[in-house]
């Protein structure tokens, strides 16, 4: 019975995945057959003129998530190291509890905090036209994924066997060498998992990003400019899905945004497979 249950669950989730990608492909097919693949690389999104350029949103998604991870990954791993190696052991569970609580806060709460604290702060400190920028989205995402990275990295670091640590100490290795040569390499699979999970969360995050990114379909000028309003794939889907009538080119283009998001995460998962890192 249990066997049957486990088997059927596995098949169910597997076929769910297939069904999902199949549906996304099916739903976005009209736009591909009508416009080819070029529209992905075009930058004008005016659904009412049948222009469905994906580039600004695609670029915004990639850039905001990339910057968010660049900020959150070192901070998260450092926080995990700090909690294990430096904080007195009586305080460790509390710090961890705090992080776990943070990981559980719904994203819309982060979004509202971003809207009321982060956006005005950026606007004043950097003297911007508006604080609703790619940078705001990236910072918000980094705060959102930080607890995930920290909690998972901490688990991974704790699993490094104590006797290895003791041996390293006996050899007279400096603390930094222990971290660099023993702790981090051994904890790498866990840290990698943490990165993947947070990447998924950041890439799919809709509401919080929608509130702070500015939602304008335009490439930043110059391209690396994080201080301008921009668009992400999720924010566009969130803003426009309700109005698009099912089956219309607009709807199909939004579905293809979803498909792109999925392909992006699949690509990331494939790229980060362990065997390519050996």
């Amino acid at each position: 019975m249990l066997r049957l249950f486990i088997h059927s669950s596995a098949w169910l989730s597997f076929s769910g995945l297939l069904l999902l990608s199949g549906f996304l492909l099916y739903a976005s097919w009209p736009i591909f057959s009508e416009q080819g693949l070029y529209f992905i690389a075009e930058s004008e999104w005016y659904p009412y003129e049948d222009l469905f350029g994906m580039l600004p949103a695609l670029f915004g998604s990639l850039l905001s998530v990339g910057v968010a991870l660049l900020i959150a990954l070192p901070l998260g791993v450092a926080a995990a190291l700090f909690n294990i190696e430096i904080v007195p052991s009586c305080l460790q569970p509390w710090l961890r509890l705090l992080m776990e609580l943070m990981a559980g806060i719904p994203s819309v709460v982060y979004g509202l905090m971003g809207l009321w604290l982060l956006v005005p702060f950026l606007e004043q400190q950097l003297d911007l036209l508006t604080g609703r920028t790619l940078l705001a989205a990236a910072l918000l995402l980094s705060v959102m994924v930080l607890p995930t990275i920290m909690v998972l990295s901490e688990d991974a670091l704790r699993k490094v066997a104590d006797d290895q640590r003791q041996r390293a100490n006996a050899l007279g290795l400096s603390w930094w060498a222990v971290v660099q040569r023993i702790l981090l390499p051994q904890a790498w699979p866990g840290i990698r998992l943490a990165t993947l999970l947070s990447l998924g969360r950041a890439m799919g995050e809709t509401v919080a990003v929608m509130l702070v990114i500015g939602s304008i379909d335009r490439l930043p000028e110059p391209l690396y400019n994080l201080l301008q309003p921009a668009q992400s794939l999720t924010s566009r889907i969130g803003r426009e899905m309700g109005e698009a009538s099912v089956g219309s080119p607009h709807w199909s283009a939004l579905m293809s945004s979803g498909l792109l998001l999925m392909l992006m995460s699949v690509a990331v998962v494939l790229l980060s497979q362990r065997r390519w890192f050996k």
Partner: peptide, 18 residues
């Protein structure tokens, strides 16, 4: 346009905060 907002509420707060 610099940014795009949705509801009246969102637009209102964007104007008020600037």
């Amino acid at each position: 346009a610099s940014i795009v907002t949705g509801s009246n509420n969102e637009g209102q707060s964007a104007i008020a905060n600037s």
